[in-house]
Design a protein around this nucleic acid. Structure first.
Lengths: 340, 340
DNA sequence: CTGAAAGCGCTTACAG
DNA sequence: CTGAAAGCGCTTACAG
């Protein structure tokens, strides 16, 4: 540890007071430009770095952001998405002088139960919340929440909370439109579960596309499979057996799409010759499946960055509301022209 | 924020001095047991939580651990592994009163260049380092490093640094032994790259198994594929074309195994009928491939927990050295009896 | 535009 | 076993 260089050392060497050094470092306006330059130069020579701990204690700001992650089913394949968002969030928060701490629903939320407590206990200025479900206890808390926070993939009627996420309706629309343009008319959808906001939106996109292109909507062609590969496998098989004229399936996640592909292959269907399949997310997994998966891409880096920016703005009092990231259709090998 | 409850409030209400409250909370021995109980009770009633920021400032300890993650290729499928370790690490550190901060090589290390600086800048008591390569600049620094740290999957000749990781030699041995017991004699290996410590170890395991069972070692059957699916795809194809009597391939990662399976399927080989394939890691991906992948499991939760424990021990002055996690063979569908 | 001083919420020798 | 006081490295009114 060598003995740390503090603001005092800088002040002494620069021949100014501690207050002035502080002002120089915090970019205050009421300081002589030359003095500022000089102080910064001295500080640099000394290798001085402000102590963020002291800073938060004295300023009563924390410069600290939480990233709250749902970790009940860590084995799930959502991981890569979340992880990428996390890193992007962290890196952009960093640049703006904010620390980030990783928080998990299983450990941190369970202890504190409510968000407000979590903020004070972890000394958070704000939080990025991923994987919130409509059934979570603290979902209600959010509608009247007054502390800065940003939600991923869910929006809520409260101007204090920001939201980021891909445009799920549009994403689903693109997926289904792609199938329609390939000539498919009997298109099923394997959706997630009702506790996820995105399920509703992706369903809307599906319905919208069918509607737009004048295709009849059949309720029985839409089924839920809980966002799991195994659920989707079972569901896909049942679906095809009941409706043997289905030529395409839109799945609300890549994971489910893979499950469907595997299940259908195993009972003798060729993908995409017999049945076209589209996923959602564009996990790396999509490129590993055989055939490679046509899917809708979420730009996780952009999502993470936006989340950090919204949050920091919120903290400094500027509201931004909802940021919608554009999805992108990635055509690979799991979709083909309808043969009927 | 309501006005926070501080140590002062507790002291006043309990009718003792601030010092005494501090002692009660830090489990010091020189305090009357009853006083301690009483103080804790009062504190609880008040809902008092020690302010960790103030604590670190005054005690000159940080109670803060870094988790340094390699994020140059975030798209890679290693993510799930790392993420799981992260969460496990964080949760166990939490329980022992340590904060964790996420650090990345691309952003944090690049700025500071060396580890020591990273520690002082981020006010770390210790760090868990994942994804270190033999070619990294700070690899050298580690051999004489004096601050507490724990490395994942790499060991170094310095009693100050701890190491956790699966027993790679044994893991590889189990994989190859499994193939041998199925009757395979011509077994190739697709390894990672030379900058990874694990590549050497897994190779050793492979050689050891062949040796143990009296199988001839042929240098040309071992090739590197950079831990990528595409590298492995290319490599597998070349391998098979040059040596058409190969009946099994051991891949040093699941990702490469999937690449190999896809490539070989596409040129007409059946897995496992023609060629058996074993991976390493047991990513969730292994259950999604078709056929499902036989592989070696790394217990990521245990690794993360151990890392946290070793690190905290190191910080309090107790060395533990190297912790080796037992790997496990998971037999699924990608391996079968040799047909020759 | 700059400085002196109080204060943020704790810990820790030092006395007693 | 307990208290009074100094100090950790900053920020921020308050004067000037």
């Amino acid at each position: 540890m060598d003995k740390n260089i503090t603001i005092k050392d800088v002040a002494k060497k620069a021949g100014v007071s501690v207050s002035t050094v502080s002002r120089a470092f915090n970019n205050y306006s009421d300081i002589n430009a030359e003095t500022r330059e000089y102080i910064l130069k001295i500080a640099d020579e000394l290798g001085y770095k402000p102590n963020i701990v002291a800073k938060s204690l004295s300023s009563n700001k924390n410069f600290r952001l939480g990233m709250l992650v749902e970790d009940y089913d860590l084995t799930g394949m959502l991981n890569p998405l979340v992880f990428q968002m996390l890193m992007a969030f962290k890196n952009t928060a960093d640049k703006q002088g904010f620390e980030t701490v990783l928080l998990s629903t299983s450990s941190d939320m369970q202890k504190t139960q409510n968000l407000k407590k979590l903020y004070t206990e972890k000394q958070l200025d704000g939080a990025f919340i991923m994987g919130l479900k409509l059934t979570d206890d603290y979902y209600k808390e959010l509608s009247e929440f007054e502390l800065p926070c940003v939600l991923y993939d869910i929006h809520i009627n409260n101007p204090n909370v920001g939201c980021v996420g891909v445009d799920n309706i549009k994403g689903a629309f693109l997926a289904v439109e792609h199938l329609i343009k390939l000539g498919h008319k009997k298109i099923a959808m394997i959706n997630g579960h009702k506790d996820a906001f995105v399920s509703f939106e992706r369903l809307d996109g599906y319905l919208l596309a069918l509607n737009r292109y004048g295709i009849n909507i059949e309720q029985e062609l839409v089924v839920n499979a809980d966002f799991t590969d195994q659920g989707a496998a079972k569901t896909a098989e049942e679906l095809i057996k009941k409706h043997n004229d289905i030529t395409a399936i839109f799945c609300a996640s890549d994971l489910m799409a893979i499950g469907a592909i595997n299940a259908l292959s195993n009972i003798g269907y060729s993908i995409p010759e017999d049945i076209s399949i589209v996923g959602f997310d564009d996990l790396y997994l999509a490129q590993l499946s055989n055939p490679k998966l046509t899917t809708i891409k979420q730009d996780t880096t952009l999502i993470g960055e936006s989340a950090a920016n919204i949050l920091i703005n919120l903290i400094s009092g500027q509201r931004i509301g909802r940021v919608v990231i554009q999805p992108e259709l990635i055509v690979r090998e799991s979709t083909a022209k309808s043969s009927v």
